[in-house]
Amino acid sequence: MAVCIAAAVLSVLAGAGPARAHGNESDQAAVLVEQAIALIANDAGADRVAERLHDASEAPDQMGVDAAKVQAAMELAEQPGAGAAELAQVRGLLLAAVGGQLASRPTAGPAVGSETGTSEVLDEFRPAKGVSNGGDVALLVVSVAVLVVGLVLARRWRPPHTLRQLEHGDEQGTR
């Protein structure tokens, strides 16, 4: 009981620590470039990509990164009105800046810890909405047909006593 009271008092008195927005930011330019590529793939916007590239250009560990290509990518991302076409060019420059080898690529053996197990950053998956092709139409027609057949068979093979109850009402309940 005393432990519960002490825990309740401590939870009220002990305030939350301050939040650090960039507490775990990497000091390796290759990791920051990979994060910028992921931001592009997930449509995070040119401003966030440019900020990550700025961090990559100032990172103390520049090993494995072509700084000139990162700088060119940063300038392209910082252009006013940078859209999807410019970000696609930025992505190509960044992949070239790290020699096509992402920092999280798998090493010998299985991926462990923070390794992703892949060296590819795929674009965001956006499936088509609604009926978009012949396969969708065929699936819709088959689904409706199966539903209609199921309802017809349920009505046809209904046990006789339930059919009488539905047609004449429950006579025992009215007495």
Score class of each variant (00 low, 15 high):
M1F: 14
M1T: 13
A2N: 09
A2V: 08
A7W: 06
A8H: 07
L13F: 12
G15D: 11
R20L: 14
R20N: 12
R20C: 09
A21V: 14
A21K: 14
H22T: 10
E25H: 03
D27Y: 09
Q28I: 00
A29E: 02
A30H: 07
V33L: 05
A36E: 00
A36M: 00
A38H: 14
D43G: 08
A44D: 05
A44T: 00
G45D: 04
A50C: 09
R52K: 10
E58K: 10
P60N: 06
Q62L: 09
M63R: 15
M63Y: 13
D66N: 14
D66Y: 04
A67W: 07
A68N: 08
K69E: 01
V70S: 00
A72P: 05
M74L: 11
M74A: 11
E78W: 00
E78R: 11
G81T: 07
A85Q: 15
Q89D: 11
V90P: 00
L94V: 01
A96F: 05
V98F: 03
G99L: 04
G100H: 00
G100F: 00
Q101R: 11
L102K: 01
A103N: 08
A108V: 11
G109F: 04
P110G: 07
V112D: 05
S114K: 08
E115M: 12
T116P: 01
T118C: 01
S119T: 10
V121K: 03
L122W: 10
E124I: 14
E124R: 15
N133K: 04
N133Q: 07
A138E: 15
V142I: 15
V148N: 01
G150E: 01
V152T: 03
L153N: 04
A154W: 08
A154H: 05
R155E: 10
R155K: 13
R156W: 09
R156M: 13
W157C: 08
L163Q: 12
G169P: 06
G169W: 10
G173Y: 14
